[in-house]
Simulated assay, not measured.
Amino acid sequence: MRLTVLGGCGVWPEAGQACSGYVVEHDDFRLLVDVGYATMPRLLEHLSVDQVDAVFISHGHPDHCADLNPLLRARTLRDARPPPLPVYALPRALDAVLALDRPGMLDDGYVLHEFTAGSELEIGPFRAQTRLLPHWVPNAGVRLAAGGRVLTYTGDSGPSSDVVDLARGADLLVAEATYVHEVPEDSKGYQSSALHAGRQAAAAGAGRLLLTHLRPGTDHATARAAARDEYDGEVAVATADMIVDLP
Score class of each variant (00 low, 15 high):
residue 2 R to M: 05
residue 2 R to A: 08
residue 4 T to A: 09
residue 5 V to G: 02
residue 7 G to L: 05
residue 8 G to A: 05
residue 12 W to V: 09
residue 13 P to S: 14
residue 15 A to P: 05
residue 15 A to V: 04
residue 17 Q to A: 10
residue 18 A to V: 09
residue 26 H to V: 10
residue 29 F to T: 08
residue 30 R to H: 09
residue 33 V to I: 05
residue 36 G to R: 01
residue 37 Y to D: 06
residue 43 L to D: 09
residue 43 L to P: 00
residue 44 L to W: 06
residue 45 E to I: 02
residue 45 E to L: 01
residue 47 L to K: 03
residue 48 S to D: 14
residue 48 S to W: 04
residue 49 V to F: 11
residue 51 Q to W: 11
residue 51 Q to S: 11
residue 52 V to C: 05
residue 57 I to P: 00
residue 58 S to C: 10
residue 62 P to E: 15
residue 64 H to K: 09
residue 64 H to T: 11
residue 64 H to C: 09
residue 69 N to Q: 15
residue 71 L to N: 01
residue 73 R to D: 15
residue 74 A to Y: 13
residue 75 R to E: 13
residue 78 R to C: 09
residue 78 R to I: 14
residue 81 R to H: 12
residue 82 P to S: 10
residue 86 P to N: 15
residue 86 P to A: 13
residue 86 P to Y: 11
residue 89 A to T: 11
residue 90 L to H: 12
residue 90 L to Q: 13
residue 92 R to G: 12
residue 93 A to V: 03
residue 95 D to F: 14
residue 95 D to P: 01
residue 98 L to K: 12
residue 99 A to V: 11
residue 100 L to T: 13
residue 101 D to E: 08
residue 102 R to H: 13
residue 102 R to W: 14
residue 102 R to E: 14
residue 104 G to Y: 06
residue 106 L to F: 04
residue 108 D to P: 01
residue 110 Y to S: 04
residue 110 Y to V: 02
residue 111 V to T: 14
residue 112 L to M: 11
residue 113 H to G: 05
residue 113 H to M: 10
residue 115 F to Y: 09
residue 116 T to S: 13
residue 119 S to I: 08
residue 120 E to F: 06
residue 121 L to A: 13
residue 125 P to C: 12
residue 128 A to K: 09
residue 129 Q to F: 08
residue 130 T to K: 01
residue 130 T to D: 08
residue 133 L to E: 12
residue 138 P to L: 10
residue 142 V to I: 08
residue 143 R to Y: 13
residue 145 A to S: 10
residue 147 G to P: 07
residue 148 G to I: 12
residue 149 R to K: 13
residue 149 R to Y: 11
residue 152 T to P: 06
residue 156 D to M: 09
residue 157 S to V: 03
residue 158 G to H: 10
residue 160 S to C: 04
residue 162 D to S: 06
residue 163 V to T: 12
residue 164 V to P: 00
residue 165 D to L: 07
residue 167 A to L: 13
residue 167 A to F: 11
residue 169 G to P: 05
residue 169 G to S: 06
residue 173 L to Q: 08
residue 178 T to V: 11
residue 181 H to Q: 10
residue 183 V to D: 05
residue 183 V to N: 06
residue 184 P to A: 05
residue 184 P to S: 02
residue 185 E to W: 07
residue 188 K to F: 08
residue 189 G to L: 03
residue 189 G to I: 05
residue 190 Y to A: 12
residue 191 Q to Y: 13
residue 192 S to E: 09
residue 193 S to A: 02
residue 194 A to P: 00
residue 198 G to E: 04
residue 201 A to G: 06
residue 204 A to F: 04
residue 204 A to I: 01
residue 210 L to C: 02
residue 212 T to L: 01
residue 213 H to E: 15
residue 213 H to I: 12
residue 213 H to P: 02
residue 215 R to M: 14
residue 215 R to S: 14
residue 217 G to D: 10
residue 219 D to G: 03
residue 220 H to P: 01
residue 222 T to Y: 00
residue 225 A to N: 00
residue 225 A to E: 04
residue 225 A to Q: 00
residue 225 A to H: 00
residue 226 A to Q: 01
residue 228 R to E: 14
residue 229 D to P: 00
residue 231 Y to R: 01
residue 237 V to E: 02
residue 240 A to R: 02
residue 243 I to Y: 13
residue 246 L to F: 06
